[in-house]
Each structure stands twice: as C-alpha cells, then as structure tokens.
Amino acid sequence: MNGSKGGVAFAVIVVLSIAVAVGFVISPQPTSVLSQVIPPNPAYTNSTTLYANAAGWDTPTQYGNTNAAIPVNPTLNYTAGTVVTFTVIETDSLPHNLYIAKGTSENLAAYYSVIGAINPIPGSKYTGEWYAQTPGVYTYWCQVHPTTMVGTINVLPANSTSISNNVVKSTELAPVGVHSPAIQLSISHAVNIQDGFSAISHNSLVLNNCPCFADGPGINWIPIEQIATGIRI
C-alpha cells in the first residue's frame, strides 16, 4: 500500500471540511436577538430615561416613590405604535445593558437588545430605540443584574379606552414642569407626575453615590443631565 491513499484521504478531508465549514457558517443564525425595523414616521414617539443601578432601574420621576434610596423598577406604559427612545445613564460603575422580551419574565430565547454593554463610568449616557409595536406585556431587564434590575412594560392598544387615562401619548404631552423633553416619562397616572414630582424631596435626587447628582435644593433635572454628559469620557 505504501501510503498510496494519502491523496485520497486528503481530498476526502478537504471536501468534508468544506461541507461542514460552509454549512455551519451559512446555517441559520441563533435568533435569540430579535430584529426590529424602527419605522421612520411612527404614530407616537416617547423618550424614557432610566438610571442604571445594580439595585434596580431608577427613574428621575420615580412616581409615588418619595424615598429614592430605594430604587424602583417602574412599570412603563406605552401606546402601541410608539417608538421609545431609551436613555440609560450609568450611576454605579458596573456594566449594564437593557434587554426587552415579550412576556412577564426575562426570556433570553427571544429578546430585543435595546442597549448593549455600556461604559461603566458614572454619568455616561447611552440611547437605544425600541418599537412598541404589538400590544401586550413585556419585560425589560439588565442581563448583568437580572434579579434586581427587572421591570414590566405594558404596551396598550392605541384605541384602548378603559385605561387610556393611564397612558400618556408623548406627542400629546407638553413639557411638564422643569422636565426637559428628553426625560419625559410615560408612566401610570401620569397626571400625577406634577404631584409626585413636587413631593420628591431633595434626597431623592441624590442617586446613589454619584456626587454629580448632589445639587442644591432647587430641583432641576436639566443641569444634572448636563453634568452627567459632561463627565463622560
């Protein structure tokens, strides 16, 4: 025999390898990350700011929560057809991301990666768009801290009348108080934003240990964001 089959063995290996490699590489990709086409002219738009903290998602308005030392994972309500621009601001020097999945719990088999890994420097700000297309209950969470940073999103039908009072269509929402448009937040009983906002004490603004948020008693969100942006590297 004297090794005369060497070339045949090599050719067989080559053909098999090509088949395996090509088949593997162009096989359907894992569809765990859902793709989403953001419509250029959506029915509604909305901007939601979330402060990323390992203890829980925090919001500047924190409806009903007068003690911001306990961060909340607010329930977010949107009208179906809203393109939501999430702004995530880092507060605690830990990596975070923002995933959204349909259903009442985290689902890594099919989710939207709204914001990938963020720069863990307090104050750095990341934005990502999500299209609240289909009515239903969604879950948003941070995959790094899935037990603490998890909340619910309700996407309500556009013609829903029963709970329409709870829904703020951002296109209808005038700037409230000293809020900048960038941090308008649609939450339940949004009509109470003013009340809740005025009830928030100064302490509620001192988010975590980030000194940049420790401004004076005058509650003004805009400078905070500017500071937050300013220290971004």
């Binding site: 004297n2 005369s4 089959k5 060497g6 070339g7 045949v8 090599f10 050719a11 080559v14």
Partner: peptide
Amino acid sequence: FLYNIASSWLKAP
C-alpha cells in the same frame, strides 16, 4: 489541483 493530488498519489512510485 485537488484531483491531481488524489489521483497522482494513487499511482506507484
């Protein structure tokens, strides 16, 4: 080229 490798290798030295 591949066929040449395989077929030529099968022949006697």
